[in-house]
Design a protein around this nucleic acid. Structure first.
Lengths: 140, 140, 140, 140
DNA sequence: TTTT
DNA sequence: TTTT
């Protein structure tokens, strides 16, 4: 039956992506990104809350994550929610929720360094990547 | 820092919402909704995968969920991702990810019954509800 | 440079789609869909405003629109905004804004008839369609 | 009837916002922002197409646009599509489509100047603003 | 663990 | 009229 499962995130990477090459040649990149909420509590104090998201990028997006993404960078990620279950060391069922990326865009400019100031460090390459539909995830 | 944490879901409720009245008068409704993905595996077999999402609706949205939502109903939910941690009975840290609803819309018409066919069973009431910003979650 | 142009609509079709076969074999379907806003004016009177959107569906999505979409049906459309300009009969430049569909999902069940009640009239076919990336619109 | 009319844009401002104070004290800011698409034509040549969007920000968002937005800046805009009609000088009905902003976030860092390099020119203030629901546009 |  |  028709349904929609869509996530849109803009935030900064907490770490460089970790890239794994699976048996069979498939590549997957995992990284975390932070989004922040601001609100006032009942006393009127300004509170900041950070939400950490687990992102999984497959195949083409994984290669691009490996090449172009790094800690601290601001990105746009569009994808879908997926909760996986696994058995922990005590053989209990545990759940982890992650975002499977379908599109990633690099935002802002890269932080400058002494040798290469921000104004000139901006990527020349196109910076939006979309996951091509792969055989094992084509909509039926 | 500017960030975006947005989720858009269309799916069907797995159960009637569970509504709790917290100390202090706050109301929260929890329900699950399913989204489905279809893909073909490497053998070309059609696979269906169901994803279950935990939805939390607060205050005004909780009241409306209690009044208008029921098992099996198709809904549009817009919200944000939140992962909470808690201690399980063995005092281990566990995580649960849920969607905090910010807007809920009722989709489709209600299933008809013998006494009241579908064509006339459509809700008369407005069927989109948006969460009013509350004191403790106003953007700063 | 990285950018995002995304539209998400849920509404009902104003008419059956109009399908055209262009020279070269490309197919395009055009239809309108309505979304509604409700608000109260300064006197507290409830106002309803209908917004009409022009949707263009190309190639695979056009075929599916032709086969599955009809006047009055509730649909989810995801796409991007495109404004085209053209010369009117007085040779003046005019603009028309439309939504180029990238994903279409059928929502709700079909209205029941005496012969075939709503409960059994639900489409058996898959009801979400995604546009495959075509040669002339592949992200670079 | 329940419907959704949602637009998500990330792009750069083409000009500084134009701010008008209407009779009655209402403030509105108008600006344009560009999004870009890249594709290859049938000869394999890389084509860039720029889409220009007309954004209208009302009340609180207008003030914030006036204060924080300027030509060239990268922004996230969430809003809804609205097509207005008007009579042109020849008394013919014309249409213009714009995006009514509901949320605006500043992305990236501000372009540096000689006196104040990019690395230190980043805004200190919170940079996401949401439109508070106003009397005349409250969901009913 | 990000960013301001 | 933006950005790379």
């Amino acid at each position: 039956m028709a349904s929609v499962n869509k996530v849109i995130l803009i935030g900064h990477l907490g770490k460089d992506p970790e890239v794994r090459h699976l048996e069979g040649g498939t590549i997957v990149a995992n990284f975390t990104m932070a989004t922040n909420e601001y609100y006032k509590d009942k006393q009127g104090t300004r509170i900041e809350r950070t939400e950490w998201h687990n992102i999984a990028a497959w195949r083409g997006l994984a290669e691009l994550a490996e090449k172009h993404l790094h800690k601290g960078q601001q990105v746009y990620v569009e994808g879908r929610i997926r909760t996986r279950q696994y058995q922990d060391k005590d053989n209990q069922t545990r759940y982890v929720t992650e975002i499977v990326a379908e599109e990633i865009s690099l935002l802002g400019s890269r932080p400058g360094t002494a040798a290469q100031p921000a104004a000139t460090a901006v990527a020349e390459e196109p910076v939006t990547f979309r996951q091509e539909p792969e055989l094992d995830q084509l909509p039926f």
